[in-house]
């Protein structure tokens, strides 16, 4: 008699790889063949995983249509099996998959729209975080401000695309009466995806300076290097005003100074 793990391995191979020769002999063929009974589980799995992708990528689905989406999802499921019992974790590789998915090659903006939707999904479920403590910041000596490493809120993501993905996203919401036509030649966008303390999620288009400042923080640059990058990206960048705005709206939440006298100022995540 095959061991439990062997039966389970054959079951999964029958459902995911279409290789049911090893499994069908273990299925009691009462009325219906083993092949048809396995097919029920194949359908359930495909419907369940496709449903998980649809929940995260409604705009991609609307852009390509239901039929094409289901076809692309089936290919994706073949190449990227689920690795977690929590379906909310499924689908993170869809943007990269779409980049190399030949039938979607005509829609060059599609992978970036998918990136926007995955960022939204991540931000939706991210932790809350206390705002930056201004008193702690005031205590840092002016001479050492350049060494500060600022941290971004767990519910903040930065995205850059050569396509107008925000306009595409906005024009393809479920409540949009008809799909808005977006002129691809209107150009790209740099975006901050941020969930406010109210839990509402906002897409903020950023100018070059502000985008590079925040991205430098996300990449763990110190403040001096981050400022240099921002000014190099945009000569007229109003750094003090934009930095204060991001602190005020809670995007910048904490800072580290690599110094025993200034331990982390992070006031912490909370669920």
């Amino acid at each position: 008699m095959p061991a439990l793990h062997e039966l389970q391995r054959c079951f999964v191979a029958a459902v995911l790889d279409g290789d049911s020769d090893g499994f069908e002999p273990h299925v009691r063929a009462a009325g219906w063949s083993g092949a048809r009974r396995v097919q029920v589980y194949r359908n359930n799995t495909r419907l369940g995983l496709t449903g998980a992708l649809e929940a995260v990528y409604p705009v991609v689905r609307r852009l390509v249509g239901e039929g094409f989406f289901c076809y692309a999802a089936a290919e994706y499921i073949d190449r990227h099996p689920s690795r977690s019992g929590d379906l909310h974790e499924y689908g993170g590789a869809l943007p990269e998959f779409l980049e190399s998915f030949e039938p979607a090659a005509g829609l060059a903006y599609l992978p970036d729209v998918a990136r926007l939707e995955w960022s939204y999904h991540q931000v939706f479920h991210a932790a809350r975080h206390a705002p930056l403590d201004p008193q702690a910041l005031a205590k840092v000596p002016a001479a050492r401000q350049g060494e500060l490493r600022f941290r971004l809120h767990p519910a903040a993501r930065l995205l850059e695309s050569p396509f107008p993905i925000l306009r595409i996203w906005q024009g393809n919401q479920e409540d949009a009466s008809q799909t808005a036509s977006v002129d691809l030649s209107e150009g790209g966008v740099k975006l901050l995806v941020f969930r406010h303390e109210t839990l509402d999620i906002e897409f903020q288009p950023l100018q070059d300076g502000e985008f590079h400042l925040l991205r430098a923080f996300a990449e763990d640059c110190d403040f001096a290097a981050a400022c240099a990058r921002a000014m190099a990206a945009q000569a007229d960048f109003d750094l003090p005003a934009r930095f204060c705005r991001q602190v005020a709206q809670g995007v910048v939440t904490a800072f580290d100074l690599l110094d025993a006298h200034f331990p982390t100022t992070d006031r912490g995540e909370f669920p």
Binding site: R9, T45, L49, R83, G85
Partner: peptide
């Protein structure tokens, strides 16, 4: 799941 592949069923 088997072999780390989940059917989520």
């Amino acid at each position: 799941s088997a072999g780390g592949r989940y059917l989520n069923d």
